[in-house]
Amino acid sequence: MPEFTRRQFLVGSSVLGALGVLGASAITWDELHRRAETTPLPPGSGVLVVLTLYGGNDGINTVIPYADNAYHDARPELAYRAEEVLHLDDRLGLNPAMKGLAQLWQQRRLAIVRGVGYPKPDHSHFRSMDIWQTASPDEPVPTGWIGRWLDVTGDDPVRAVSIGSVLPQLALGVKHTAAALDPASAPLPPEMSAALSGLAATDPADSAAQGCVCTGYQAEQTVEQTFSVLKGTKATPGGNPLSAQLDLVGRCIKAAVPTRVYSVSLGGFDTHADERHTQEQLLGRFDEAVSGFLRDMAGHPVVLLAYSEFGRRVHANASQGTDHGTAGPVFVAGAPVEGGFYGDEPSLTDLDDGDLKSTVDFRDIYHELLHRVVATDPDAVVGPGRRDLGVIA
């Protein structure tokens, strides 16, 4: 299918999601139970939750090198004092807003991969996020890493679900895409729902492109029928939007919906000014949502990956913020995780033009999650030459 036609379809899907089409169908608990009986998630199947922190989170003030004088010298007003930090060992600690993750660390259910990046880093939000979501640092490609996983693992439309009305790049494949499920969507009137359902009807006279669009709408209807009954929690004004997304994911997992990969997100991390207060608030939301979700998922083989498109520069700027950088920490958490530090801590003095030098390629993390969580040959998705880090027990 030509890329332009695919883009048109994806834009149409996101607009329909915003209009509430994702809430147009309904299903009873009995119908959902029948689906769970015919195609339930097999017991013991790993589930991966991919959490994107949009904006470039400052990893240095997230996993804090509180015992390093170079940290305090580079950020005399932005740095946290040793007594403010949630100590992980005698050198590093978590941001004080991350008390829930500190408990996961103590329970050995949190892995922190330090210094994660990619060769020849790019400071553009758009290009760097594209690299992380496509797993292709060398050249732009139209498919995401989860999309390629979808392409090689079958055609069930509920294998991967993105919570939100717009599909992220990571969810786009050549033959298949993840479904977008908007927890805030409202039902359409019955007459409009009936009219739109006609878009899924096939016609022998359809061109190949028209057939792809029909298949996409059919998949969206299947996903909606599977998930609509579970959408009992909506984001409320002033609430935690990430908690609402993860609550829906948790409901789906408990219902044995046959989804192996979920995508959720939290934005706002582009902290060029007055960073400390803003980042603490965002990390507090992140911590509340993730720690609560993983407590709720105790006993389930669920692994959550949290990443951002880049870290920040070592030195604070004149506005008490930080500018776009390179390497940063990645969190991997859940019951199957072997907690601890992975990767070498980047030096704060041996820099690349003011930026941290990465010590771990992010594709190695993807390699292990594909291999150990969703039981797929990673080479078809992230290419050859990658390795597991040992994060999954």
Rank of each mutant, 00 (worst) to 15 (best):
Q210R: 10
V360E: 04
G198F: 02
S291N: 06
K120V: 08
E220V: 08
P237Y: 02
A102R: 15
I112R: 04
P2G: 11
S347I: 06
F293V: 08
L110Y: 11
D287M: 04
Q225F: 06
G17S: 09
S14N: 06
L356Q: 15
A74W: 04
Q281P: 00
Q103I: 04
A180E: 08
I163S: 15
S14T: 11
T134E: 01
P336F: 03
F126C: 00
A171T: 15
L51H: 13
L92P: 13
S13Y: 03
D353H: 15
V213R: 02
R251W: 02
D206F: 10
S128E: 11
S319W: 14
A194D: 15
N240V: 08
H125P: 12
K254N: 11
P336T: 02
P40R: 07
T134Y: 00
S308L: 09
D122I: 12
T359P: 07
A205C: 01
V152N: 00
R108F: 01
R35K: 06
G292N: 12
T153K: 05
G383T: 01
G147I: 02
R372M: 05
P384C: 00
E220H: 11
S291F: 04
S185G: 09
I392G: 07
T52Y: 06
D156A: 08
G292L: 08
A316N: 06
Q218R: 12
M297E: 12
V330W: 09
D364G: 02
T153C: 04
F4G: 07
H277P: 00
G354T: 14
G117Q: 06
L94T: 07
P187R: 09
L32I: 01
L94A: 05
N95W: 01
F269I: 10
P336V: 02
Q103C: 00
L110H: 13
E3F: 11
A194H: 13
D30C: 00
G164F: 13
V21K: 00
C252I: 09
D247G: 15
A74Y: 05
W132I: 08
L369I: 07
A36S: 07
A171Q: 12
T222I: 08
D350W: 02
P336S: 05
T143L: 02
L304P: 10
S347E: 12
F126K: 01
G299W: 00
G20E: 10
A335M: 04
V11H: 08
A306N: 10
R159T: 15
V223G: 03
V141M: 03
P142H: 04
L283P: 05
R91V: 14
A298D: 14
A24Q: 06
T376L: 06
I112K: 05
P384S: 10
H371K: 14
G147R: 07
D130A: 13
V50I: 14
V391P: 10
L53D: 04
T39D: 10
V21Q: 11
F331N: 12
V15E: 08
G173Y: 04
Y71R: 05
S13V: 07
A244I: 08
H87Q: 13
V15P: 00
P43N: 12
L92I: 09
L282S: 03
Q320H: 15
V229N: 00
W105A: 13
G23C: 10
L16D: 12
T322K: 13
R75F: 01
P40Q: 03
Q107A: 13
E288Y: 04
A18M: 08
P142S: 11
G232M: 06
L348Q: 10
A179M: 11
L305I: 10
Q106M: 08
R295S: 09
P157H: 04
R313D: 11
